[in-house]
Structures are given as structure tokens and as C-alpha cells.
Amino acid sequence: MTAAVRAELARWPASLKVGSASFALIVLTGLFAPWLTAYDPYTQDLANFLQPPSWQHPFGTDQVGRDVFTRVLYGIRIDLQIGFLTTYVPMSYGLLLGALAGYLGGWFDTVLMRLLDVAVAFPFLVLIIVIIAILGPGVHTIYIAVFILAWTMYARLARSEMLVERGKDYVLAARTLGYPTSRVIFRHAMPNVINSSIVFSMADFVLNILLVSGLSFLGLGVEAPLPEWGAMIAEGRDFIFDAWWIATLPGLAIVLTGVSLSLIGDGLAHRLGQRQRSFL
């Protein structure tokens, strides 16, 4: 077993190793945040507001005296959770619908394609904002909006992959053996269809973190006082000239997370023998 693990690790490209190590570190930091800091992310300390970075407050304090480092650590929990769910929930049914459409064709495919055509005609963020305008701001609305829209990208990807796989000999062989359609789709074709989506999901994860922090920055997403990175940058914006650290350091956290995930995506593309996909 350990030999198998070691063999697998030996086949990992450097980007995959570095990316997963730093991402694992970020996740662990988020999980153990309460043990890594002496402060509370919400407790205000008005006597110590806008303190520059120091030994006591490595990332300084914000306008109400909260420790920025602590808030950045707790932010990991919020941003990663939202990023994860907004990526993999839509991926699950997007893959399913796209693969079915690609395999079955017919009216189902036609309807799905028309839906996708309309969906890509809008800038993604604009539609999200419109849904927020309808339902009101907040994390729940972001979930609803992304769940309504984001599956389309995976459906498109899975459909085009399935169209390729469907014509290959091994699928024909499985069909001539009289296997039920569901078995041909899920046991035979799906494992080959899914790889491109897995690679893509890493870039999507990054984009979703950017999306959530962006919406929070616009005041349409996660609301104060939750320590979401984008919301923290928005709060720090007003003080950026006097206290650069409030807005700058949460941004670095986003960059670090994004880079880790992108490296994983890059490495997975190599490992899974996928053509290096463009980010989108």
C-alpha cells in the first residue's frame, strides 16, 4: 500500500506537489485557527485601532482594533467553504446533464444546448448580480445564483468530451456487448469524460473565490462583520492610505490560495494526461 502511494507520488509533477502541500497547509491553518491566534475575529479593541504590523499583531489591526491576522485565518474557513461548494455542487449535476446530452443527443441535447447558448450570452457576474438584485444580498443568494448558473460550464465541457468518447471503439464495444445504456455511460465513458472537468474545477475554484470576494467587495455578498477576505478588503479600502495592511494582507491570502489551487490544476492536467486547458 505504501509502495503504491510512493509510486503514485513519484509520478506527480512538481506543481502538483507544491500546490497540494501549500493548499493542505492553508486548510489546516483554517481548521486550527483558534489555536494559532490569541485573538477573537469579532472582538473589537477600540484602544488599539489601526495599529501597524508588529510582533503582537503581525498583520496589524483594523479600524475597530480587531487583529487582521486572526480575521485572515478565520477567513480561510469562509472563503474555502463557499469556494468549494460553489465549485463542486454545480459540477456534479453539470457533468451529469452534459454527459447525458452528449451521449443521448435528441431533444434533450437540443433543449440543453439552447439553454447553454442563452447562459453564455450573459457575462456570468452580471447574471449573478441580477439574481442578487432579485433575491437580496447575502451568502444564501450567492449559493442560489451560482447553483442556477455555474453548472452550464461543466455541462458544456462534459457534453463535448462525451461526443468524442461516444464515437470511440471501447464505447461501441460496450454497446455491442449489450450492456445497459446507464452502464455504458457511467462505468465506461464517464471516467474519461470527467478528467477535463476535474482539471477545470481547480481554475473554477479560484474564480469562485475571486467571485465571492468580489461580490463582498461590492457589498453584495458576505456581510460584515464576517471575516470574509473580499469584505475585509472593502472595509480596508477607506483606510488604505493610512493603514495599507487592512486591505493588502487579505488580498495576499486570496493570491496564495489561488496560486496553490492553480498549481494543483496545472499538475493534475499533466498527471491525468489532459491537454493543458486554458483557465476557462
Binding site: A203, G214, I233
Partner: peptide
């Protein structure tokens, strides 16, 4: 490129602005 891709546009904008 990986770093550029991971940087939130509003954050780069803010830093460039400052």
C-alpha cells in the same frame, strides 16, 4: 501567469490606485 490569475481585480486596482 498563475499569480496574475489569482489576484482579485479589485485588489490589484486598489493597489495600483494607491
Amino acid at each position: 501567469g498563475v499569480v496574475g490569475f489569482a489576484m482579485p481585480p479589485f485588489w490589484i486596482g486598489l493597489l495600483l490606485m494607491v
